[in-house]
Amino acid sequence: MDLADRIELRRFVGREHLLWLWFETELFEGNLRTSKHGSFAMWVEGRMVLSMGRERTTIRGSLPGAHREAKEAVRRGKLPEAVGFRLDRGELPASFVLKGDSLALSGLSLPEPPKEETPAIEVLADAPRPKRRGKAKDDADAADADYDAFYERMRRTRDVEEVLEALYADFLALRLAAPWRASVWPAIERWIDGQDVDASGYRAIRSRATKR
């Protein structure tokens, strides 16, 4: 198989990855874990688009995966094309939409950290007399602010990407091994049909497969 076929004929793997992420976030009630990052909170939020060919179902809401139409669409053969997630891991939360076919992110929102508040009386007491500022100084300050904002945003973007890459690596460890057909996919099918899934049994299978 050549490179183009490996890319184009297997784009469905990205959609199956989204389905698996949705399954895990529900099964583990939003408490996910990777060996590199430990445990963190992640859940489906905001938007979910499922499609098969030209047929498409779009669900919006705070928990779109919980809508009856979502799993109904999967039962009819649709796979997630784009899913909104919220990732809460230590420092600050992030929300984004992950696309299945390209694994590209859209609308990655990284709220700025809250600024420490200083009592107004201290601000006024410490404030120097206003000086006339040159344009060059203003431009330099603006450029510095841009640099700082950019580095901080890239650092946090990279954090999100690393978590998603670790989850994708775990998914591949399952998807490209025997347990997928034997245990994982049957569990996902039961979940789609609204049946109970043995979370601890699944977790044990996952742990074995991802220990590489």
């Binding site: 890319i7 990205g14 990855h17 390209s102 694994l103 994708y168 690596a169 490209l176």
Partner: peptide
């Protein structure tokens, strides 16, 4: 970036590569 190119970047074993195909 695509499901395959990311998988390749993360590192696929020989067995996983043939499973991918």
């Amino acid at each position: 970036e695509a499901p395959y190119t990311l998988a390749d970047r993360l590192g696929l074993s020989k067995a996983e590569r043939s499973a991918w195909d």
